[in-house]
Structure formats: structure tokens, C-alpha cells
Write a protein that binds this DNA or RNA. Structure first.
Lengths: 210, 210
DNA sequence: CTGCAGATTGACTCGTCAGTCAACCGCGGC
DNA sequence: GCCGCGGTTGACTGACGAGTCAATCTGCAG
């Protein structure tokens, strides 16, 4: 199996190199040879493991997105948790994903999630599943009475996800500080902003969780 | 002046054609000849009015973004308006921009605002001015006491803008209904979600004071 | 009518890659 | 020691598309 092992390693090597190269130069602005060079591998080998440049990006996206979908489903599978806590965990997961592998998240967001042409369109349904997962959490919050019923769950989910993606964009574009504490702080703040709202509660009704 | 007039017309013709073509196929997936054809103009004329394909997109972006920056500043210049009303007007302006010219907004968002490579990076400062403008509104809300002080204004601005951009993306990607009523409804909902929060305000919770 | 200046044309150039392919290696089996 | 078969190599091709440019047109001024 030593052979099989090594073959797998090279494939992984190429994928990891692609993450770095795509993150650095962007999918459209880099050459397949850049990926091969970064991986320390011959040009042709890339085409031994992948049918096209696009397939590399598709692989990276699907691999990672599925992990996120599973995480969201797992978080929502605890009936005892309040909706706000669930959303906090979702925000945590996404922000930690960025913290742990910023290049990969950058590639996924910039090249797929936010790219209406080619990749965004191709993976539209997969992307939507994340919104749907978040919407399910909000829906439960509505059912249990902790969330308002006049904001549709799907709508709330898009606002929540949009806010988080904007934060990630802030880090990606270097508009936000990437210090460790900032990540932790952002988790709490984004949940407070979306769940608690920006307005101060006149009658002193702002709930604080955590 | 007849000559100058016609020259201007052709330039505008090319810009408008570019909006349609960029929106339909994406900046990277269309040829300069597509733009020329769409404008009903010879290939070379595009290069008479613009130095490069990129310059066309830059022109479109700067033109429109400045209008938005002015609108935000104008909205914020009314001291008598409460912060929530100001944010409502900002949301209105952006959503109406999309309603009025979806192709242009699609191009700006997909190709510039959400494109970390090339265009997004090039116009980073200009884009940031919009966040700053919204942050200024939030800051005033904090000062006048209607907004919480524990969420930084810049952070709140990014959440607000992110939520709106996500909605526009929903329309762009055809995830959301483009009916007239939906646009109006979305304006109110997004402001309610961000300002009022998702949580229903139950009696008696700890108030956070700052 | 003539000539100039700017507008307009579109065939052509030229660099750039994505993807191909024929040859080459190295290891495991016989 | 030889064979065969994945794994590996990188020079090459073919398409494509941005940008150039010399020729042509058009309208006006003298």
C-alpha cells in the first residue's frame, strides 16, 4: 500500500498547493503551472489527478462545505440548546474555520460563494443548504418563542449569514484585525448584533447569553 | 457640438452595453468584442474611448459608487432623523438601486465589491468609505442613546451592509423573489432584523449598560 | 470644393495558458 | 535480471482574446 499512500499524498499535495495559490493570486489570475510549482510536482501530474483546473476548485469547495453543513446540522440536533446559543456555535464554527485555515476559506468565499458566474452558479444548491440549515435553527427559535415571528426564518438566515460573510471578507481584505481576541470577540458581537439587535431596549429587555 | 454630442453618446452606449454583457456573462467570461457587438459598434471604437477592458468596469463602478456615497452622506446630514430611520433610508437607497438597474448593481457587487482579487483590491478604499458612512450613522445612534454602546459602530456597519449585500445576492442568484412588494418588504425586514434583533423581547432580562 | 481632425472600422498580432501526450522512471512480482 | 504498470515528467499544441494600427469615413471650416 506504500504506492497507494504516496499517490494519495501527491493528490493532497496538489490540493493544498492549490489552496495557497488560489488564495494568493485568485483562481483566474493563476496558472495551473503555478499550482504544480507550488506543490513541487510536474505540470502533467496535476492532470493525472484532476480533469481540469476547475475540478480542483470544485473538490476543495465540496470537501469543506460539506463539513460545514454537517456541523450546522449537528448543532441544530440539540433540542435543549436555545436558538441564540445555536447561532453562536454556527458563528463560532465558521469563524474558527477561517482562523484555522484562512486561505481555504478565502478561496471558498471569494471564488465560489461570492462568484455568481461559473462556480457560484454551479454550486448554488449546495450553498443554499447552508442558508436552509441556519433557517431551520431560526425556525425552531420562533417555535419556542425566543425569536420574533414577524421576520421569516429564511430572511433572518440570510441576514445572519451575510453578516458573518461580511466579517470574513473584512479579514480577507485586511479591513479587520486578525488578532486572536478579535475572532473571539467577533463571535459574541455578531450574535448580539443579529439576535439582540443594535437598538438599546427601552424597557431594559436586552437578553445576554453566554 | 453635434460631434461632441455624438461622441458622448457612443461612449455611453458602450458603457451601457458593458453593463448588460458583464451582468450576463461576467467580466472574465466575456470578450471585448461582446461589448462592442452589444453596443452595435466596431471593436476598435471601444479602445478609442477606453484604454482597456478593465477601465470600463472601473468607470462603471466609480460612477455608481460615488452616487451611493453621496446618498449616504445626505441621509446622515439630517440630525432630526432617528438612527433607525437613517438606516432604513440607506437600505431603501441600495435596494432601489438594484430595483432600478439590477444589471449594474449585479456587476458592481459580483465583479468589484465581492472580488478580492484585481477590482476589489483596487477599489478597497472607495468601498470602505461606504462602511464608514454607515458607521457614522450608527455612531450617532449610539451618541443619542438609541443604539447600544457595546457593539462598535464599525462592526455594526459591517453587519448591516453584509446583510443587505446578502439580500442583493439572493436576488442576483435568483434565490429571492423579485416582485415589487418583496423589495419594499425587505427594506423593513432588514432594518427590523438588524436594529430590533431577531429575539422577541421578553419581560425582565438583564440590561447591558455601557 | 478641398483639406483637416476626429470618429469609426475590423483584420491582424502576439502573448498566454489549459489541456495533451509520448516518453521515462521505479518498484514489486516472477 | 527482466517485465509491466502505475506514477511522473515537461515540451508542445491549439484556441482564444486583449490590444494595435493603418485605412476609411464624416462633417465642418475656409
Amino acid at each position: 500500500m506504500a504506492t497507494a499512500r504516496r499517490a494519495t499524498d501527491k493528490r493532497r499535495l496538489i490540493l493544498d498547493a492549490a489552496i495557497r495559490v488560489f488564495a494568493r493570486r485568485g483562481f483566474h489570475h493563476c496558472r495551473v503551472s503555478d499550482v504544480a510549482d507550488e506543490a513541487g510536482v510536474a505540470y502533467g501530474l496535476v492532470y493525472h489527478y484532476f480533469n481540469s483546473k476547475e475540478e480542483i476548485l470544485n473538490t476543495l469547495f465540496l470537501e469543506r462545505w460539506q463539513i460545514m453543513l454537517d456541523a450546522i446540522a449537528e448543532i441544530d440536533s440539540h433540542p435543549e440548546l436555545p436558538a441564540r446559543e445555536k447561532l453562536y456555535r454556527v458563528a463560532s464554527f465558521i469563524i474558527d474555520s477561517y482562523r484555522h485555515d484562512p486561505d481555504l476559506m478565502k478561496v471558498i468565499i471569494v471564488e465560489v460563494t461570492r462568484s455568481a458566474h461559473s462556480f457560484g452558479a454551479a454550486h448554488l444548491e449546495t450553498i443554499q443548504e447552508a442558508y436552509a440549515g441556519i433557517a431551520r435553527i431560526v425556525e425552531r427559535g420562533r417555535e419556542e418563542g425566543s425569536f420574533k415571528s414577524d421576520i421569516p426564518a429564511e430572511f433572518a438566515a440570510m441576514c445572519f449569514y451575510g453578516a458573518i460573510e461580511q466579517l470574513l471578507s473584512g479579514w480577507i481584505f485586511d479591513l479587520l484585525n486578525e488578532k486572536e481576541e478579535e475572532f473571539e470577540r467577533a463571535k459574541g458581537l455578531v450574535v448580539e448584533a443579529i439576535c439582540g439587535g443594535l437598538e438599546s431596549a427601552p424597557a431594559g429587555a436586552t437578553a445576554v447569553s453566554g
